[in-house]
Each structure stands twice: as C-alpha cells, then as structure tokens.
Amino acid sequence: MEDITAQRTTLCPSARPESVNGVVFGVVGGKATEPRIAYLKQPLPMTEELMAKASPVTPGEIFRTATSCIESGCQHFNGKDCSLAMRVVDKLPVVTEDLPPCSIRRNCRWWQQEGKAACRRCPQVITDDYAPSKKVRQAADPAV
C-alpha cells in the first residue's frame, strides 16, 4: 500500500474533514462524556464517499483528519509554532502514558513541535465536539 503521507512534510492533525488532500488517521470512539480516538494503522484519503458515511452526524464528529499544515494561513499559527498544540499541552490532561499507535506521527506538526506531551493528550481531541469540557474549550480558543 502506498504511503499517502509521504509527500507531505508537515501535517496538521486537527484539520477539518473537508480540507483539501485530507487523510483520516483516527475514528472517534469511547463514551460521549469521554471520547477517545482509535488510530488507524494507515491513514485513508478523505473522500466524498467517506464523508457521506458519517451521516447523519458531521464527519468531524467521527473522524480525526490531517492535511498539510498551512502555517500563516491558520488562526492557530503564531508565525513560528502551532499555538493550538501548545494550548493542548498546557490545558488538557494526559490521557495515556503510552504513545498512541499514530500513523501520521513522523509528519505531525504537534509531534515535531511538542513531542510526547502532545501525543499523550491527542486521543481526546475531537474535531466537532458539541459538548466540550471547559478545558477543551480553552485549548481550542485561539484568543486564550
């Protein structure tokens, strides 16, 4: 199987599912009050067909997706680093001591920037979380 992330240098692990050239690297599982990402062995291209399978909910409620980091085109990029990754590490609790079996790690901006600290918090990050905790809301807010 072809490595669909090989041509990308840095991936944003918090991309919207509808992003150009997005890949799915995880599926939301766990409980509604304590969701957790189940990581795929290999990322899959995010296709219209895959997005349609999420219905009746949004693809962001089910899939964790990544795409090339757009750096200064993103509200979370401060000119040098991803401030979202910094806030995730600063505001969210560790949810696993072991590094998750993540298929995008070597290209992940969060990993490259924050290392293990980001990976130990990543499984609780859900793109479309309609009942986030106060800490999750703070971590997601670029104004904080």
Rank of each mutant, 00 (worst) to 15 (best):
Q112I: 15
V94T: 15
L99M: 11
S55M: 04
D98H: 01
K91A: 08
C69E: 05
C102K: 09
L84M: 15
S55D: 06
C102T: 07
Q138I: 08
E97F: 05
V23Y: 07
R105Q: 07
L11I: 11
P59R: 01
S83C: 06
K135N: 10
S72G: 04
P56I: 08
I62E: 00
D3S: 08
R106M: 04
T96M: 08
R36E: 05
K31T: 15
Q113P: 13
V88A: 11
K135R: 10
G26H: 08
V20T: 10
A85P: 04
W111C: 13
Q138C: 05
P93T: 12
N21Q: 10
C108Q: 01
V89I: 06
K41H: 11
C122I: 05
P123G: 00
K135T: 10
N21W: 01
L84V: 12
R109I: 12
R8F: 13
V24K: 01
Q113A: 15
D129H: 11
A15K: 11
V136R: 05
E18P: 02
L84R: 15
R137D: 04
I62K: 00
T65N: 12
K31S: 14
V57F: 03
S103G: 12
E49H: 03
V57I: 12
P13I: 04
A15Q: 12
V94D: 09
F63P: 12
I4Y: 09
V20P: 01
T127C: 06
A118V: 03
M46I: 02
W110K: 07
I62Y: 00
G22L: 02
K31I: 14
R64Y: 06
P101V: 05
V28A: 13
T33E: 13
M1R: 07
K53V: 00
I4S: 02
P132Q: 05
K116R: 10
K31A: 13
L92T: 13
G115C: 06
P35Q: 01
V89S: 01
P93W: 04
R120D: 10
L11G: 14
M1V: 09
P123M: 00
L84E: 09
W111I: 09
R36G: 02
E49D: 14
C102M: 06
C108L: 01
L11V: 13
D128W: 03
G79Q: 08
E48C: 04
V20N: 04
A139D: 02
E114P: 00
K53R: 02
C12I: 00
R106A: 10
V24N: 00
P43K: 05
Q75R: 11
